[in-house]
């Protein structure tokens, strides 16, 4: 119940920030937001084949006067790097919420390299990074970070820690 509450709060924060398009590569940690986006007639929910598509989607939306959020998992951040030249060169806002893997009770070692590098890589590519660790801070942090991105016209990523999301449970 607690998880549902903060995730609905995050969706409300995106709506309040004026987000009209949500691009996503699915992740269990984003499932509620994706469900809400698809159920919302005033939101275009766009399923992507790879995460960098969401950066280009966001750029096109901005050219047309709309705001976008990209939902992805930390492993997808690695797919995005060159495409980040687009919002940076064009002085466009870019906002993404990244669910973290490979950092808290991770079962799958293949998630660890990109999970460990996510913040460093985003920062190196010119993205401002904020990180939520606790359920009681996440909604405010998303709301403030979305304003930061759209009002200051810069790329911003919010990382949702694996501790917050809950490590994926593997059953043999």
């Amino acid at each position: 119940m607690t998880e549902t509450t903060w995730q609905d709060g995050v969706y409300a924060a995106l709506k309040a920030a004026g987000v009209r398009q949500i691009g996503y590569v699915p992740d269990a940690g984003h499932a509620r937001l994706i469900e809400r986006a698809h159920a919302d007639n005033d939101m275009a929910a766009v399923v992507l084949t790879t995460e960098e598509e969401g950066i280009a989607l966001s750029a096109g939306a901005y050219l047309g006067g709309q705001r976008t959020a990209l939902l992805m998992q930390s492993s997808g951040v690695g797919n995005c790097i060159n495409m980040l030249s687009l919002p940076i060169n064009c002085r466009m806002p870019f906002f993404t919420i990244v669910t973290m893997r490979g950092e808290w009770g991770e079962f799958n070692p293949w998630q660890v390299p990109m999970g460990s590098a996510t913040e460093t890589v985003l920062t190196a590519a010119g993205v401002h990074v904020r990180r939520a660790e606790r359920a009681d801070e996440v909604v405010d942090l998303v709301a403030a970070s979305a304003r930061f991105a759209f009002d200051s016209c810069i790329p911003v990523a919010v990382l949702l820690s694996q501790k917050l999301i809950g490590a994926k449970v593997w059953v043999k």
Binding site: A44, V46, G60, Y62
Partner: peptide
């Protein structure tokens, strides 16, 4: 630059 991004910029723009 942003090679591979042209069509998706088109999509974001078309939706907006």
């Amino acid at each position: 630059g942003a090679m591979g991004g042209a069509a998706m910029i088109g999509l974001g723009l078309a939706l907006a």
